[in-house]
Structures are given as C-alpha cells and as structure tokens.
Simulated assay, not measured.
Amino acid sequence: MIEGKLRLILGITGASGVIYGVRLLEVLGREIETHLVISDMGAKILELELGLTLDDLLEHATSVYPNSDLTAPISSGSFQVEGMIIAPCSMKTVAMVANGIAENLIVRAADVTLKEERKLILIPRETPLGRIHLENLLKVVEAGGTILPASPAFYHAPKTIDDLVDFVVGKVLDLFGIEHNLYRRWDLPEQG
C-alpha cells in the first residue's frame, strides 16, 4: 500500500499488561515506522508495572502524539498506514471503538483505521469477560477489527515472562506479515 517502510500506529491504553505494548514498540521500532499514542492511564500503568515513563519509549517510536491531539496526522484517513494495534486495550477503549466514540486520538485513529478498511488489532487484557465486554468485542470484529487476546501458548515451552509476551507479540507480527523468530512455531515431533 505504501512505498518504503511499513507504517503502523500503536496505541497503549490503561489496561494491565502494558508490557505487550512496550515489547511491540521495541520490536517494531527496529524496522517499522511506528506512530505511538499512549493514554494518561496507559502512562500510569507503564510506571506502575514496568517502572518506565513515556521518555523511556521515545527512542523506539518514529513519532509520538498526545492522546488529546485530535489534529495529529494519524487522526485522518488520508494519512496512509497499514494498520493499528492497541496493546493493551482496556475495556473502556474497546467500548469506545465498538460504539464510535472517538473522543481521544487512540479511538479516533482506530475509528479511521476501521472506516478505511485497514487492519485494526486489539489486545484486550481482561478476565473474566462479562457480557458487555463480549458484545463490544463482537461489534469491533463485525466492524472489521481483529481481537487478539493476551493468551500465550505453552507448546513452545516458555521459560520466562518474556517468552510468554513474545508469543503474543509474534502473533501480532504474523497478522501483518512481518517475519520474526520470537517464538518456536508449532511442529509435531517426528514419529519414529
């Protein structure tokens, strides 16, 4: 779609599991043009869970926008991107995306991503899921989004939290066709 470097938007919201967004940014920032938006609560969770601040993420992002800036380039469909990832995605953000309530830049960019029929991937990190959560997630899927729960596999024999996180991050990369070796893919042992 776009000549040159792959271009993606990454939103980080205030759900637990901010490690998924940070790891995505680290991996994407190496080869991908990454446009980052972090919500106020996302920044708070970043500090609480990882002891990091937005300044710690700047080196990995191509551009960073305040969540309040609805004039940012990524708020327009004319800004060409392959897609958007929200990791982690709070249930508040899911509800706003599902219902078209674009009152902040993360949700506006997600809304634009859907209306332009680009790939939108939400990584919810909530359990258990109630009926309202499930209905909102379904609405996002029906609008063209993809729900990728933060549910790592165990067939690759993870040894660390990083192994678990890399599995989920690798699944996101797979959906965008980005090559990686973050986890061992499923393969049955040879039968003797």
Rank of each mutant, 00 (worst) to 15 (best):
residue 89 C to T: 09
residue 61 A to L: 12
residue 68 S to C: 10
residue 78 S to C: 13
residue 77 G to P: 12
residue 64 V to M: 03
residue 82 E to F: 03
residue 64 V to T: 13
residue 109 A to Y: 05
residue 119 K to E: 15
residue 99 N to C: 12
residue 72 A to N: 06
residue 58 L to Q: 12
residue 80 Q to S: 11
residue 84 M to I: 07
residue 69 D to L: 01
residue 70 L to G: 09
residue 52 L to Q: 09
residue 71 T to F: 09
residue 93 T to H: 11
residue 92 K to V: 15
residue 96 M to S: 15
residue 106 I to H: 06
residue 116 E to F: 05
residue 98 A to P: 13
residue 125 R to S: 04
residue 67 N to Q: 13
residue 99 N to I: 14
residue 55 D to M: 03
residue 107 V to T: 15
residue 87 A to D: 03
residue 113 T to K: 00
residue 53 T to W: 01
residue 69 D to E: 08
residue 49 E to N: 08
residue 67 N to E: 15
residue 86 I to K: 09
residue 85 I to P: 00
residue 98 A to T: 07
residue 96 M to D: 15
residue 62 T to F: 10
residue 111 D to R: 06
residue 121 I to T: 09
residue 67 N to S: 13
residue 72 A to P: 05
residue 52 L to A: 07
residue 102 A to N: 11
residue 59 E to M: 12
residue 87 A to L: 01
residue 46 L to P: 04
residue 54 L to Q: 14
residue 49 E to L: 09
residue 109 A to S: 14
residue 89 C to E: 03
residue 86 I to P: 12
residue 123 I to Q: 05
residue 89 C to Y: 05
residue 96 M to P: 05
residue 91 M to C: 11
residue 120 L to E: 10
residue 86 I to D: 06
residue 51 G to Y: 06
residue 110 A to I: 02
residue 51 G to V: 05
residue 89 C to F: 04
residue 72 A to Q: 06
residue 72 A to G: 09
residue 121 I to H: 08
residue 64 V to K: 03
residue 86 I to N: 06
residue 123 I to R: 07
